[in-house]
């Protein structure tokens, strides 16, 4: 699908291309996790990746910040190829924020220390500046009062919000979400999704792997449907959810019981 030029379907495509995936291939031994993925992510867009488990969505995300190396194709970030050198890759990672399904907060640090860790250790800010940023980010996700708590004292939803604050403290140009609500109790999913919506409304560029179809329908600007390592359909949410053009997409949605 050609989505290079701005169209009524893709209003934000006039913005800069933050990420370009061109023919991305990733193999694990004999298994091909990604078989040639083409996708653009424009500034300010919320791109949602949906599809069955094991279809490659999370793999693509991990390739985006170099946690996994590509076997073919390339990824362009802000106009430059993703480097292979570890040191250059580190610099790129500071401009991307990643949020994991299992939160991965550092258990030996308080919420505030978790959020301040990136600015302190990676950006080499002094302690006062790092703490100032961290406090601001915790307030942004609604957890200013939990600053002194350890992750073990926080609920799943709270931990995930702290994880979002931790990524935001680095002031990234794009936020990558890898199934952020899949490990949460239903009651706490809402609090995380509303933080994500708030970020989207503020214009953050986001790539979100999710099973929350309502979120993708309401907040997403562009949706890509994955199956066995390829994108079988991509388009605006109205198309994907209301009038899908491929059989595969229709099957996937009906399996989820999606009735719009």
């Amino acid at each position: 699908m050609n989505a290079d030029t701005s169209s009524p379907q893709r209003p934000k495509s006039s913005g800069a291309k933050i990420i370009r995936y061109r023919g991305v291939i990733k193999r694990y031994g004999g298994f091909q996790a990604l078989g040639g993925v083409d996708l653009d992510v424009h500034a300010g867009e919320v791109v949602c990746l949906i599809g069955p488990s094991g279809s490659g969505k999370s793999t693509l995300l991990r390739c985006t910040n170099g946690l996994e190396a590509l076997d073919g194709g390339d990824i362009e970030f802000e106009g430059a190829m993703l480097p292979r050198d570890e040191r250059a890759l580190r610099a790129v990672r500071t401009r991307m924020g990643m949020v994991f399904q299992s939160f991965e907060l550092f258990p030996h640090l308080t919420a505030l220390e978790n959020v301040a860790e990136g600015p302190r250790t990676v950006l080499r800010k002094d302690l006062a500046e790092a703490n100032r940023r961290a406090t601001a980010m915790l307030a942004k996700v609604g957890l200013a009062d939990k600053a002194a708590n350890y992750p073990s004292a926080l609920s799943g939803g709270q931990q995930q919000r702290v994880a979002i604050a931790r990524a935001l403290a680095m002031e990234p140009d794009v936020m990558l979400f890898d199934e952020p609500t899949s490990a949460l109790d239903p009651e706490t999913i809402g609090e995380v999704l509303s933080v994500m919506k708030k970020l989207a409304d503020e214009g953050m560029t986001m790539v979100v792997v999710t099973h929350e179809m309502t979120f993708a329908r309401r907040v997403g600007d562009w949706v890509a449907v994955f199956e066995t390592g390829r994108i079988v359909e991509q388009g605006p949410p109205t198309q994907i959810f209301d009038a899908p053009t491929t059989e595969r997409t229709r099957d996937f949605l009906s399996h989820l019981g999606w009735t719009g």
């Binding site: 570890e86 990524a167 680095m170």
Partner: peptide, 24 residues
């Protein structure tokens, strides 16, 4: 996952061992 999260923040391997892995 702890290593992955620390890498995603842009930490170097040495920083990860020192600040994230060893304390835990």
């Amino acid at each position: 996952g702890q290593t992955r999260a620390a890498l995603a923040l842009g930490m170097s391997r040495a920083q990860i061992v020192r600040r994230i892995i060893l304390p835990q």
